[in-house]
Design a protein around this nucleic acid. Structure first.
Lengths: 223, 223
DNA sequence: TGGATTTTTTAATATTTCTTCATTTTTGTT
DNA sequence: AACAAAAATGAAGAAATATTAAAAAATCCA
């Protein structure tokens, strides 16, 4: 329902583009790339729900792009700043950008910040609830109800269910789930996902979570 | 006659600070000063009963500060606006701020407006009570009753209970509670929350406050 | 100031959750 | 049907987190 968020990435460094592509696409985002300021402005539209903006850019720099986008939209903007960039420059933008991340940055931290910002935005929009068949997840209160009666989930179980419900119809490989829940630097067995999934299935006493043999897991879209 | 009301003044102009200091302290207010937006946000906490906010501020402008404070509190906010500030800008904040005063302003008028706002608030607070099962919180009188007999809570315990009762059903992480009660610049251990919570639970001799392991604490909605 | 109260820190203990691994079951292929 | 590969299961030890209690520090008040 809320997924398929489109993210505009304005960045000329191909390596960074590529890192973001791998990481953020795994996390379920749709990406739009622009390699310079002019392209960044051109590619921006109403469907973009978040912008990641490098400061050093060809043609028009990040601040310029920020100004233009801000003049027509309140979309969240995260700036990528090299150490060399003047902090003082950034200060003027305290109100205009939502966050900034100094390079070199960890993709995990970027993802965390993105999710925090998008979640905040979402919260103010609507009460955070995920509904699926006889299930109800109350994200604010951290409750899960199955046919109206509460089911107590552990943290991992909760996150597993949340991610899959937020992306119904999408297959998650074990590695993707590990990345998103345990973090990319976690050093654990892949099979641990199976283990938590087993417990989750048992607690929900349902077979909503399908196994895609050789690939991973999926919760089907509610037809 | 009323108790020491704390007023947070976010203003970088030293002259204005000094005028306010003289005038408002004489009127019996306790003042907390912040010279820029970041400091303003940091200094804000549950004990502040009114905020005076300049629009033009270093680091984060008054609107930004307003957003942040509003996101966690209904404290009255009065904006100080220079003539140059766009009136249109203010319009967007019609619901969010309680009043505004154009600069240059007379301290006397400011004081009048403050008292009016605080009086209004007090009236609506009058007899303000939070009820939950066998608990009664009298916010005006700072009393807590459990089955009719008073329980003496410390300040921290009181605020902890108040915030959680005002947001029944919502999980608070330790960090969220620290931010709201201690202020975001507090440098204390997260575990201090556990500690006060333990005492609170003991005094209330109840298990209303649920632990969400790995997340935080919550008081369930009265079904 | 000095004693009392509150707040914070610390550390030991208890509890829950996570992880691993060996075993069983299922699935897909020949 | 038999085999191999993948996934599910169950159980036990390891790790993380929460609860206590008690001591230290800070604050408040007379």
């Amino acid at each position: 329902m809320m997924m398929n968020e489109k993210v505009l990435i304005v960045e000329d460094d191909f390596d960074i583009q590529s890192i973001l592509k791998n990481y953020l696409e795994d996390a379920g985002y749709q990406l739009v790339f622009a390699a310079d300021g002019v392209e960044g402005i051109a590619r921006f539209n109403e469907k973009i729900s978040l912008v990641i903006l490098d400061i050093m850019l060809p043609k028009i720099d990040g601040f310029g792009v920020c100004e233009v986008i801000r003049s027509k939209s309140d979309v969240p903007i995260i700036m990528l700043t090299a150490l060399a960039d003047e902090k003082s420059q950034l200060k003027g933008y305290a109100g205009k950008i939502d966050d900034y991340i100094p390079k070199p940055f960890s993709a995990k931290i970027l993802l965390c910040k993105m999710e925090a910002i998008l979640r905040r935005r979402r919260v103010s929009d609507e009460g955070e609830e995920l509904l699926y068949k006889n299930l109800k997840m109350d994200l604010t209160g951290h409750h899960v109800f199955c046919d109206g009666t509460e089911v107590i989930l552990t943290q991992k179980e909760f996150e597993l269910l949340k991610i899959m419900l937020e992306n119904k119809g999408k297959v998650f490989t074990r590695q993707m789930l590990l990345d998103r829940i345990w973090g990319i630097d976690a050093y654990v067995e892949e099979r641990i996902v199976d283990s938590h999934l087993k417990n989750l299935r048992k607690k929900l006493s349902s077979s909503y979570i399908k196994t895609i043999r050789g690939v991973g897991y999926r919760i089907d879209e509610e037809k």
